[in-house]
Structure formats: structure tokens, C-alpha cells
């Protein structure tokens, strides 16, 4: 099992919002779409899985590692080694080229080594994402769709066993949405990674192996 959440309870300080999930899991190699209205806790659940947030109670296990019990430093190392994050707002650094942005996980980690193979993988991913010609450009020189593809390449370049994508198609037109999802699912399948993606677009849901409604997950206290 790739993700296993048990008896999760999480609240933000000084906020009334509470996320309570009794059980939620994702199998290895599975692609899951998380859906639900804004504010229902989709991003919170994803942050709990990635170790950005820690629950007040309950356990989050990812790839056999109990993330919720790790120290801050161990969770940082875990994210770099296990998770490929694809955020909605690209989160590309404006002072780096697209190539440097894709390879940025190797610049901030002492456990990942930047090798010629990795650089070749970066070029290969960019080729398949259709942004190979833009590798030496800066983010502001690219369109929204191209920037999102660059962010996706950065999420995949470490060949993570789990890809977490938070509305990566939210700002894109239908054509680019399709390209991004095809690239994400295709690459994940190629490296055998599980995918957990938040989306609001019902047209994309058939592309996923399973669709989870977070509201139901919270109400029913179990998998949808």
C-alpha cells in the first residue's frame, strides 16, 4: 500500500475547520482523483500525506514509513525522496531557467545527487512534455500551460514513488489540461508511481483509476 491514513484528526490553529478521516488508502501504482468543494480539506489531506502538515492524532503511512511520527528534518528528507509535488501555481523560481527549475530538488537536497543521467532524464521529460525548446528560458518567457508542464517535470524528475498534484490544471485551458493529465498519468505509469491529484474538472475524472470525494470521506469515515 502506498498511502494509508488511520483515524486522522487535524485542525488549524485558531480556526474552526476540522478534518477527521478514519481511513483512507491508495495502492501502489494507483491513480486517484480527489474532488470536493473548496474548503472541504482536499489540500489539507494532501499536505498531511506529504508531511507538510502533521495531524493532532492518527497515523499517516506512506510507502511503509509513518510520516506523522517523523521529525521535521526527516519529513523534509522523506518528501525529497518519496514525493513528487505538482502545485497549482507552478511554484517555479523566476531567477532560474526552466532546466534549473526542473532540477531544483537536486540543489536543495544533500541526499539527491545531480548526475549526467539525471540531466538526461530532465531533458527527456522536457521533450515528452513539449518544452524541450524552452529549457534555457526563464519562467516569465513561457505560457501558463508550458510553465505547468515544467512544474510537472520537476515533480517527476526524481522518479518518486508517489506524485501529489494539487489542481495542476486549475489555470489551464482544456487542451493544456488534457496534455498535463496525459503527461502526469503516462509518466507515473512508466515509473510505477501512485498519483493523488486534486481536481475540480469532471471531464478529467474518467482518466483516473479511482475518484474520492473528500466530503464523503469525512462523513462516512471511510474510502469512497
Amino acid at each position: 500500500m502506498m498511502i494509508k491514513c488511520e483515524n486522522l484528526r487535524f485542525t488549524y490553529p485558531a480556526e474552526s475547520f476540522q478534518l477527521a478521516i478514519d481511513a483512507f488508502s491508495v495502492e501502489k501504482g494507483e491513480s486517484v482523483a480527489l474532488i470536493g468543494p473548496s474548503g472541504c480539506g482536499k489540500t489539507t489531506l494532501m499536505n498531511l500525506v506529504s508531511g507538510i502538515l502533521t495531524p493532532q492524532s492518527g497515523r499517516v503511512t506512506v510507502n511503509g514509513l509513518v510520516v506523522s511520527e517523523l521529525t521535521v528534518a526527516a519529513r523534509q528528507r522523506f518528501r525529497l525522496g518519496t514525493i513528487g509535488l505538482v502545485p497549482q501555481n507552478f511554484e517555479l523560481l523566476d531567477y532560474l531557467t526552466i532546466r534549473e527549475n526542473i532540477l531544483v530538488p537536486f540543489r536543495v537536497s544533500s541526499q539527491l545527487r545531480l548526475t549526467r543521467e539525471i540531466e538526461a532524464r530532465c531533458a527527456d521529460l522536457a521533450e515528452r512534455a513539449g518544452i524541450a525548446a524552452h529549457l534555457d528560458k526563464f519562467p516569465r518567457q513561457l505560457s501558463q500551460g508550458e510553465r505547468q508542464r515544467a512544474a510537472l517535470c520537476r515533480g517527476l524528475v526524481t522518479s518518486p514513488p508517489l506524485v501529489l498534484a494539487d489542481e495542476p490544471t486549475g489555470n489551464l485551458d482544456p487542451e493544456n489540461q488534457d496534455k498535463i493529465v496525459s503527461l502526469l498519468l503516462g509518466e507515473a505509469a512508466r515509473i510505477g508511481a501512485s498519483v493523488l491529484m486534486i481536481t475540480h474538472d469532471p471531464l478529467l475524472l474518467p482518466r483516473f483509476g479511482r475518484v474520492v470525494e473528500v466530503m464523503k470521506l469525512r462523513r462516512k469515515g471511510g474510502d469512497a
Binding site: I52, Q76, L85
Partner: peptide
Amino acid sequence: EEFRHLRHLGADLVT
């Protein structure tokens, strides 16, 4: 915001 992105990616505090 940039540092928050890097922290989310897994950059440690010392870095």
C-alpha cells in the same frame, strides 16, 4: 513564497 516552495519540495531548514 519562494522559501515556502522550497520547504515544500523538501529543502531542510539549514539550507
